[in-house]
Design a protein around this nucleic acid. Structure first.
Lengths: 110, 110
DNA sequence: CTTCTATTTGGCTATATGGCAAAATAAGAA
DNA sequence: TTCTTATTTTGCCATATAGCCAAATAGAAG
């Protein structure tokens, strides 16, 4: 592809890659509802604190969330709620896939 | 997170992960304009045919594209054009990030 | 059947990622 | 100051990914 376009696609891919993990999708969805600190998210997700912290740093580095320290916890917020629109489309893909699977099964049974 | 939710987040993550690569984003955007065969995409992207073929199989396995053989080429099509909506949001994140960077620079110069 | 063309697959290497545990850091409370 | 709590960083290992090359496959064309 034209070399001047490369960096643009790479930048986009970095953002999307930051979302491409089950726990991080959970975090995004949760933060869309309300801000949360690491401890809360850790408990909800059920893995090691350090793991959740790393996920948060991935999201932060991508610019998807911002953090603010209050009392002795760090609260994370979703910066661009539009990322939630993704989910709708992803679900559309998933149900299209499910439908196709169903059709294939139906066809084989005949 | 509640164990019955896990599979759902994993399914979503698989779809998003399939998009999380510069070449695959390019392919998605190109296929949104018109169907293309492997050879055409290979030339546009400029990497090995086998590499592009693998990218296409990632997209196909995710259910994002479908393929149809005609003459002696295989033509790929975008199955859910809504994935293009992603890009708008991703660009929003990118420009928010750029703005923040600019603000930080401005602040430091003072 | 043989040849040619388009695409996929397998083998390989280098690099990136996710996870936990342990050590390090930051900042409030005593 | 020291103690405590919340979070981040580091080290390590296992696994996944991208890329190229070479080999295999599928069909069209001769």
């Amino acid at each position: 592809m034209k070399s001047r376009l490369r960096p643009q696609y790479e930048a986009r891919a970095r953002i999307i890659k930051a979302m491409a993990h089950p726990s991080r999708l959970f975090i995004i969805e949760e933060l869309q509802k309300q801000e949360r600190c690491v401890g809360e998210l850790t408990e909800m997700i059920g893995s090691d604190t350090s793991t959740v912290s790393k996920h948060l740093s991935v999201l932060r580095n991508a610019g998807l969330v911002s953090d603010e320290k209050r009392a002795n916890s760090i609260y994370y917020t979703l910066r661009c709620p539009c990322v939630m629109d993704f989910i709708g489309c992803v679900e559309e893909v998933l149900s299209a896939n499910a439908k196709e699977h169903a059709d294939i099964l139906k066809c084989c049974k005949k």
